[in-house]
């Protein structure tokens, strides 16, 4: 029964954070809340019995995508980067960070017996499937990443200076 309430608590936290991401007007704060939301989601994946997905969720969503958003914010709205976060938001951030560290610490979870992991936890079998029979997936993902890098490079390339050439043609 206590498991049910813990799962429910995490889910309610997740939905509240998602709602705040949508409704908070300051984009930097929205991004901070998005990072917290991704971290809570990774805790949920962990307690559901998918530790690899939890690690990837943290690395990709709370790490890589957050850095991309930060770079975009810095480019488009440089002025908001200098703002200080309020004391309340700092306290919420610190509390959630502490909570996540506690939740991720396997020893503490075991010691408090808060969340029972699923029975017959097949940590030995999962990596075999996840990494052995996935060559096609990995090729597809590599192609996807290559296509993305090419697309981003093409979108962000500098425009060629056409005017100079036109002037030279006119003069000649």
């Amino acid at each position: 029964m206590i498991d049910y309430f813990i799962h429910m608590g995490f889910l309610v936290t997740l939905i509240i954070l998602a709602f705040l991401v949508v409704e908070v007007k300051d984009l930097l704060r929205a991004l901070a809340l998005f990072i917290m939301m991704s971290s809570v989601l990774s805790v949920i994946f962990y307690i559901l019995g998918a530790p690899y997905i939890a690690v990837f969720q943290l690395a990709i969503y709370a790490g890589a995508i957050a850095v991309l958003f930060l770079a975009t914010l810095h480019t488009t709205k440089g002025r908001i980067m200098g703002k200080n976060l309020s004391l309340t938001l700092n306290l919420i951030l610190a509390f959630l960070l502490l909570f996540m560290i506690l939740a991720f610490s396997i020893n503490i979870i075991d010691a408090l017996n808060l969340v029972n992991p699923p029975q017959n936890y097949p940590l030995e079998e999962k990596p075999f499937f996840l990494w052995t029979y996935r060559s096609l997936d990995i090729i597809i993902q590599g192609f996807l990443l290559l296509a993305t890098v090419t697309a981003v490079g093409a979108i962000l390339r500098k425009k060629e200076e056409v005017e100079v050439v036109e002037k030279a043609v006119e003069e000649s």
Partner: peptide, 24 residues
């Protein structure tokens, strides 16, 4: 007995696609 490996694998692909969407 936990989450199926196939579901985890599909989620990994979905995460990669999500990251690519965000980048573009």
């Amino acid at each position: 007995n936990g989450v199926e490996a196939l579901a985890q694998s599909i989620t990994l692909i979905s995460m990669t696609i999500g990251a690519c969407i965000a980048a573009v």
